[in-house]
Design a protein around this nucleic acid. Structure first.
Length: 665
RNA sequence: GGGCCCAUAGCUCAAUGGUUAGAGCCGCCGGCUCAUAACCGGCUCGUUCCUGGUUCGAGUCCAGGUGGGCCUACCA
């Protein structure tokens, strides 16, 4: 278990402000890092920002700023947000730092020396927002809104390519040998399926903008942002580097090190396919594991700036404290699954689990029982009764299980296991009824009972430490203990019962988690700008719903009327039709939509209709569909049709001569 | 079109092929009173999506179907 541990978050693109999703990834990585340190493992935790690319260049220009000045302004809020969240990163890398840029160039030269880089040219649809070309199909399947949002444009440029195709088989072999390389497993299946289809060479340079790392030996090109960005994971360690050249690289990117990249499911392919391919080419071992977590919705709705549920972590930290937010994020959502961030649920968990559960346990014992009966000193344990043994067993089980789940990167399960102990301890207090023992003057037994609970609390202070570092310190302070001080090589996870020293003065203090009553709750929610409508009821969290809220929340599976109106259906008169050469299905139609000129629309109806039979037909056309290019031809709309296996396909047509261009409703 | 994943209580989720399918939350009833209107106990709610199959035994394995999510592809 003394393998060194290197955990990373994605580096965050600075064309955005920090939000709860960034917080989620980073907190998860922090929990793993803090846990590893407690276990005595040499640990390194990296986060940072991704600062190159066209989007940044454009945005800076819009603002009339130098790109460097712009990113210098945008990066610190991330760092600050993570500091506020008590994230214990050892390094914060920015891709505009010289230490990084140098290493990206080094990696490029290595790939080039391997013969895996060549100069070619590339034409396709380019999504400026993603800094990536998208396939013809992706383009076609994308809504207009989406295209505008992602700034998709046609582009041709000279480009360097990485021989990704060469790595199809090596990657498949690598996956075979590393069956837990990608987690969760379902995501790994998707990755494998993608690679199995065969990989295309990857364009890894751009000439269309300047804000990037220049290609070594050809200043006309800058290096593709993903090659740039992914390299951060090693550049921050001083890699690529020959053995002995960089101590960090030797230590944390070594055969005996465990390297875990925490990523969002949206960037899995870059991490699970491109990144290991680059590394294989460079003769560097790929990471141990890529963990793809899911997305958070906010009170049941997709997070977006427009709908006002773009949640920055700052106000939440202010309202609840970093630890509570961290706890909620890690407790509520199964890691790897999508989940919902619901303010109501946060409050429910706060009161139910933190205040009533752990907070009250500490309070009833330290501030009341120990203070009154033992003058605030940790009592001396006496003979153990079976019920005491049961609680000790519960503590041991909680420690083992929570560790097991953290080892498996299942933080929510880990907390589940810890709260089993909280519940067991509260039950134990009820069963043993220390107040009755005090009344009966059974001091010895009372001492044993109190000690057992205090020692359980000490264990709990360690078990919660990865999740709630500040609360761990506060809890330990009340027990008369100093903060945990992890040391490499010393496993601090609780294992031995009875390390709490009798006679230690406890320090009863304010409640660890003061209960939030209904009135405060209302005020808090108002301050956070959360209405009652959007918040899920406790115990009945909203299932993720795609609807935007309107006056009356629409029923599941329905859309509001105005959404329907977004689709412009019109009567179209087919003026001409011909089969598209080299296509089995496509028919090229010329359709009158009552506009100055006819539209060219492609339809996959060849097997069911002879082209000439279509001429003169009045059909229903989606008139405001984004144009799509299919087999080199542009289609400016869509003809509605229905099909089943029995009858084949049937085009919707009108039985009266309604004028072309008439709106269908 | 191809593929992957999922479906268990009102909600969120557990259950190496092996008793009577569990836990938390919500709800109801009761107890206790050291404690933060906290804590503890009890109760209600299940055709484990459907139909078949394998097996001594299926929530679990297999086939098909239904519903949902996702990946992928020259279906608008």
């Amino acid at each position: 278990m003394n393998k060194s541990f290197y955990v990373t978050t994605p580096i965050y693109y600075v064309n955005d402000r920090p939000h709860i999703g960034h917080a989620y990834s980073t907190v998860a990585a922090d929990v793993l890092a803090r846990y590893a340190r407690l276990r005595g493992r040499p640990t390194r935790f990296l986060t940072g920002t991704d600062e190159h690319g066209q989007k940044i260049e454009d945005r800076a220009k819009e603002l009339g700023k130098d790109p460097q000045a712009f990113v210098d302004e945008m990066s610190p809020p991330f760092r600050q947000a993570f500091e506020e969240l008590d994230c214990s990163f050892d390094d914060y890398i920015r891709t505009t730092e010289p230490r990084h840029e140098r290493k990206v160039a080094d990696l490029w030269k290595i790939l080039e020396a391997r013969g895996d880089i060549y100069l070619g040219s590339y034409e396709g649809w380019y999504a400026v927002a993603d800094e990536a070309y998208i396939t013809e199909l992706e383009y076609r399947d994308m809504s207009d809104e989406e295209k505008a949002k992602r700034k998709v444009e046609r582009k041709q440029e000279e480009s360097y390519f990485f021989r990704l195709s060469k790595y199809t088989q090596p990657l498949l072999d690598f996956y075979e040998k590393n069956p837990t390389f990608v987690q969760p497993e379902g995501r790994f299946n998707e990755v494998k399926a993608f690679v199995r289809e065969g990989l295309q060479d990857l364009s890894i340079s751009r000439t269309s903008f300047r804000w990037g790392i220049p290609v070594p030996g050809n200043d006309a090109h800058v290096i593709y942002v993903w090659l740039d960005a992914l390299t951060n994971y090693i550049s921050a360690l001083g890699g690529p580097a020959a053995p002995g050249e960089s101590e960090l690289f030797d230590r944390f990117w070594a055969p005996n090190a465990e390297v875990v990249h925490i990523v969002g499911k949206d960037i899995l392919r870059f991490h699970a396919v491109y990144w290991p391919a680059f590394l294989l080419s460079a003769g560097i071992a790929p990471p141990t594991q890529i963990w793809a977590h899911g997305w958070l919705t906010i009170n049941g709705e997709k997070m977006s700036k427009r709908s006002g549920n773009f949640i920055p972590p700052g106000p939440l930290v202010e309202a609840f404290g970093a630890d509570v937010l961290r706890y909620y994020l890690m407790r509520e959502v199964g890691f790897g699954q999508d989940g919902d961030f619901a303010h109501r649920n946060l409050l429910a968990r706060y009161n139910g689990e933190l205040a009533n559960g752990l907070g009250n346990l500490l309070n009833r014992m330290v501030r009341s029982i120990v203070r009154r009966s033992f003058g605030g000193l940790v009592p001396t344990p006496a003979n153990r009764e079976p019920e005491d043994e049961a609680l000790i067993a519960a503590a041991q089980k909680a420690a083992q299980e929570s560790a097991r789940h953290l080892d498996a990167i299942a933080p929510h399960r880990s907390l589940d296991a810890v709260w089993e102990l909280v519940a067991a301890a509260n039950r134990y207090v009820d069963q043993t009824a220390p107040w009755a023992l005090a009344k009966e003057g059974k001091t010895e037994r009372l001492g044993q009972v109190a000690y057992t609970v205090l020692e359980s609390l000490r264990w709990l202070s360690v078990l919660i430490a990865p999740f709630m570092p500040a609360k761990s310190v506060a809890l330990r302070a009340q027990l008369g203990l100093g903060p945990l001080e992890p040391e490499e090589g010393r496993d601090a996870w609780p294992a031995a019962w009875g390390e709490l020293t009798p006679g230690t003065p406890t320090a009863p203090g304010e409640p660890l988690f003061p209960r939030i009553d209904a009135k405060q709750e209302k005020a808090l929610l108002a301050r956070l700008g959360v209405g009652t409508a959007g918040a899920a009821a406790p115990g009945a969290p909203a299932k993720k719903s795609k609807q935007k809220s309107t006056n009356e929340p629409p029923k599941e599976g329905t859309i509001p009327f105005d959404r329907f109106l977004d689709v412009e259906l019109k009567v179209g008169l087919i003026l001409a039709a011909e089969a598209v050469p080299k296509s089995d299905k496509l028919v090229k139609l010329s359709v009158d939509l009552g506009e100055p000129g006819p539209r060219q629309i492609l339809a996959g109806i060849r097997p069911h209709y002879a082209p000439e039979a279509l001429v003169g037909q009045r059909v229903v056309v989606v008139a405001n569909l984004a144009p799509r290019k299919i087999m080199g031809l542009t289609s400016e709309g869509m003809v509605l049709a229905a099909s089943d296996t029995e009858h084949g396909l049937s085009v919707l047509s009108l039985d009266k001569a309604i004028a072309p261009g008439t709106r269908v409703s």
